[in-house]
Amino acid sequence: MTTRREAIGLLAHLGLGAGAAALLPGGVLAQAGSAGGDWRPLLNGRDLTGWTFFQDGVGAQDRDGVIAFHDGEMHVLGPEYTGPENPGMGYIATAEEYGDYHLSLEYKWGPRRFAPRELAKRDSGILYHAPSGRDYLWPDCVEYQIMEQSTGDAIPVNHRAIQAISAGGLPSWPRDFPGNTQYAPQVNAGPNLRQHIRADGNFDTLEGWNTVELICRGDSAAHVVNGRIVTALYGLQAQHEADRAYASVTRGRILLQIESAEISFRNVRIRSL
């Protein structure tokens, strides 16, 4: 196990110094890696301008009121939803691709749960580095998991990543320990290959609003939950559909998932790094 002294040594190597280490965990490291331009809204809080909609079994039009906006908040599968008890899963997606950015948003769970996950933990997610093109369920991407007591996990789908070395519970960021070049193991999930990189700690709340942040810089990424950095990824790669070979990936569309649970989003904003 990495000691606190070794962690402080890493911070010194990164140019942060022991003073920053005294303010750990999490938020200081995230701030150190996220200086950038001015914030701007990515979702305007009124409609899906700049975004597209996809629901499995339904398509590109929101037939059943899956998405609704009130007072600057976007509600997913809320009271306005009038469709079947087993709504098709899907997402909203940015029309543009993004790279080198800091994304921030707030989310809050609602009470409604739907088949086939009435008894499962409520689940959603931010999918990033998704390619442009056709829409389909479980697209190629890196998922920033939003799930009860698992928010911040990373699930690369036909992508892969090197999990940062954790220095006593602190994923190394904005640079990893030298020599960490091993990609996390993949599992065959049928139509795709997946990794599951678990967050270092549970910092989400099941009641009220949570703030999550995603920092993408080059082929690296950090997941921040309520001010704590919980996951850091390096050497991000995507699998090319034609030859299944992996190559570095640094940009793509950003998606917010629709997954059988009521959830609200607000203050979805982004800035360039």
Score class of each variant (00 low, 15 high):
residue 168 G to Y: 13
residue 109 W to K: 06
residue 96 E to K: 12
residue 76 V to R: 04
residue 216 C to G: 04
residue 27 G to A: 15
residue 116 P to C: 04
residue 259 E to I: 00
residue 202 N to P: 01
residue 264 S to D: 05
residue 157 V to F: 03
residue 30 A to N: 05
residue 27 G to D: 15
residue 40 R to Q: 15
residue 194 R to S: 13
residue 106 E to W: 04
residue 9 G to Y: 00
residue 72 G to C: 02
residue 226 N to M: 02
residue 92 I to S: 12
residue 104 S to T: 11
residue 255 L to H: 07
residue 125 G to C: 00
residue 182 Q to K: 13
residue 108 K to T: 11
residue 9 G to E: 11
residue 3 T to Q: 11
residue 67 I to F: 10
residue 53 F to K: 14
residue 254 I to V: 14
residue 21 A to C: 04
residue 88 G to R: 10
residue 144 Y to A: 12
residue 201 G to M: 08
residue 234 Y to N: 10
residue 224 V to P: 06
residue 180 N to R: 12
residue 76 V to E: 00
residue 262 E to I: 03
residue 37 G to Y: 13
residue 92 I to A: 10
residue 197 I to F: 00
residue 46 R to L: 15
residue 202 N to S: 10
residue 93 A to N: 10
residue 99 G to L: 15
residue 136 Y to S: 12
residue 247 A to N: 09
residue 191 P to N: 11
residue 5 R to L: 05
residue 128 Y to N: 00
residue 5 R to M: 04
residue 269 R to V: 01
residue 87 P to L: 09
residue 179 G to P: 14
residue 96 E to G: 07
residue 109 W to M: 05
residue 6 E to F: 06
residue 226 N to D: 05
residue 60 A to D: 03
residue 176 D to V: 12
residue 169 G to V: 15
residue 215 I to T: 09
residue 31 Q to K: 13
residue 192 N to D: 01
residue 196 H to C: 07
residue 62 D to H: 13
residue 247 A to M: 04
residue 147 M to E: 11
residue 256 L to F: 14
residue 44 N to S: 02
residue 140 D to E: 13
residue 256 L to G: 09
residue 211 T to L: 00
residue 98 Y to I: 06
residue 112 R to M: 01
residue 193 L to Y: 08
residue 62 D to Y: 10
residue 179 G to E: 13
residue 268 V to I: 02
residue 203 F to A: 04
residue 7 A to V: 03
residue 39 W to C: 15
residue 251 R to T: 12
residue 48 L to W: 03
residue 250 T to I: 15
residue 106 E to I: 03
residue 127 L to T: 01
residue 13 H to I: 05
residue 24 L to D: 14
residue 239 Q to W: 09
residue 101 Y to D: 05
residue 104 S to N: 08
residue 221 A to T: 14
residue 213 E to D: 09
residue 196 H to G: 02
